[in-house]
Design a protein around this nucleic acid. Sequence first.
DNA 1: AAATTTCCGGAGAACGTTTTCCCTGGGTAG
DNA 2: CTACCCAGGGAAAACGTTCTCCGGAAATTT
Lengths: 342, 342
Amino acid sequence: MAEVTLRDVARAAGCSVATVSRVLAGTRPVGAETARAVREAAERLGYRPNEVARALRSRSTGTVGLVLPQITNPFFPTLVRELEHALHAAGRAVLLADCDDDPATEAARIGALLGRRVDALLLIPVDERRSREAVAAAAARVPLVLLDRGCGPGVADSVAVDNAAGMALVLDHLAATGRRRPCFIGAAGTASAAAERRAAYAAGAAALDPAAPERAVLGDFSVEWGRAAVDRLWPARPDAVVCANDLIAAGALQRLRQLGAEVPGDVAVTGFDDIPLAGLADPALTTVRQPVAELAAEAARLLVRRPAGAPVPGPRRPVRTVRLAPELVVRASSAPGTRPTS
Amino acid sequence: MAEVTLRDVARAAGCSVATVSRVLAGTRPVGAETARAVREAAERLGYRPNEVARALRSRSTGTVGLVLPQITNPFFPTLVRELEHALHAAGRAVLLADCDDDPATEAARIGALLGRRVDALLLIPVDERRSREAVAAAAARVPLVLLDRGCGPGVADSVAVDNAAGMALVLDHLAATGRRRPCFIGAAGTASAAAERRAAYAAGAAALDPAAPERAVLGDFSVEWGRAAVDRLWPARPDAVVCANDLIAAGALQRLRQLGAEVPGDVAVTGFDDIPLAGLADPALTTVRQPVAELAAEAARLLVRRPAGAPVPGPRRPVRTVRLAPELVVRASSAPGTRPTS
DNA sequence: AAATTTCCGGAGAACGTTTTCCCTGGGTAG
DNA sequence: CTACCCAGGGAAAACGTTCTCCGGAAATTT
């Protein structure tokens, strides 16, 4: 009653467990009549295979660990959603681990997931440097794909948006709409997204006008920092504030308006990521949309397409890195200045 | 190399697998010297117990399924975070399932989780009615706690905020700050939160002024609906717009300002849930904060505190329902009207 | 001193699958 | 007619734990 097993089905169908297993798994041809009887019995008894036993025997749990820094970071939920769907479509369940933005908990969670014998790990590292050791160790035991952020060269396969291209889109757009004195509010961390975006801004701004002084301040990826940064930058009267992500941009927008600046009249503001908040801000935020669904699909593909054989073939297999193209989403916050250099 | 098992440790320590198991699990006293040898061997070989085998034998996976309607609903991430931490602290891993707001996928996901032999389910039902069947079936097989939303009476244990109390807090606050002509933007769904909040509003508004006409419109829990609803309500010139959640409130706020209404001068706006967006809106949103951490802790407690014995004792065990008190968070959007009934 | 209990340790049976053998019977090729 | 092969089926060995017996030695009681 409590638990219908293969034995019960076999007994009811009048054959052996082996046969039942073969019918249900379709691993070997079975006589038509027997197959019918088995299926009928399984149906009638309400047989549900025990995934745990299956996992033990076949050495594969059909489970993927998803490790992220902080689920409350508004960029992650949509990513998690896409990943969950992509993986479920591939018949894999998702074990979720939230690291509270702390490398130590991250290492602990990774360890716990490995103990649970996940087939693979999908991981957004907390910190480029301090996550490296745990990530490398995990990658040696199980297929692992890094998402959104890198973790040092050659550590593991990774999928991320092309941050440089995204930043270039922003700068081109601003230049095309007549902005000449941009500034940048970035994040100081070693997280690769932070580094790549600020490097791309620096490169792009220099290309636009080599003579212009580069105005950039660095903090973290938060609304608070966006507000604070504006206080530092506004006195220089930039005509565009380029932010390293949407949260910063939201904070900047808020503070600019408090200071009496008109957006986009006096100053344009741009973000990065296109989190749901971006469309809701007032004015709505021009930003760079990450191709979240493609990111997820690509990550799932990398996980599954691990060539058969040992889970981790050679000591130094080639690491695959996928970069996806972002898309510029132009909204009100960067509309051409209605109030020219008056 | 690939996999260190109890056998290996036993061989290295010169004893039997049974002894090793006992030492490591501490289930029975073992000689001091043997224990030391075992621990040393386990440490040296880097033994990590295989949770799958353990699960098969002990009929408990140490795993909890977390089923939610849509992880992208901004109220859920913080809840997920707290749940993940609470469960991890109890030594349980979290299997995540996103239902895409569809009862059919919800049923499928529940089935998949049961196949994976989760020890328990934590579930936020998609729909009060259409989720009932699947939820009841699941509750018959494994401990199940409903979160945030109910699913019909007597189906399963549940934990949620006291929506009526929250709505009362809002109405009291509005009355105390001189608002006299409130209106309500609610959600029509059968989700229990929607129903409870609109009932509580109706009750509270009638209590304040039995003669006042009740102005309420119903849609869904979205920003778009908030915007649309304002177009319907604003002509009546309410001095307060009470919204069934923060998303609606955000939309209402936006539209009101587009229409030239001053918030909070002309009209106060309130939300519900206190999602991160609430503090970021302009003006910041007065709302009802759900005690998310307590909700999570209580849910975890209910799951674990299932009395030993059969997972589901009687055919009709008493259902426990926990209601937690919310807290009013007063922000700018409901500051006392600076522009009286001029 | 004998009888009983306590303590420590091992052998081995589960747990529910999958998979490797092996067997049997009937068909086909030589 | 012999030899071989193939399809269909069963017995049983894994997978890595936990846990129930059981046995012997030491400690305690009678």
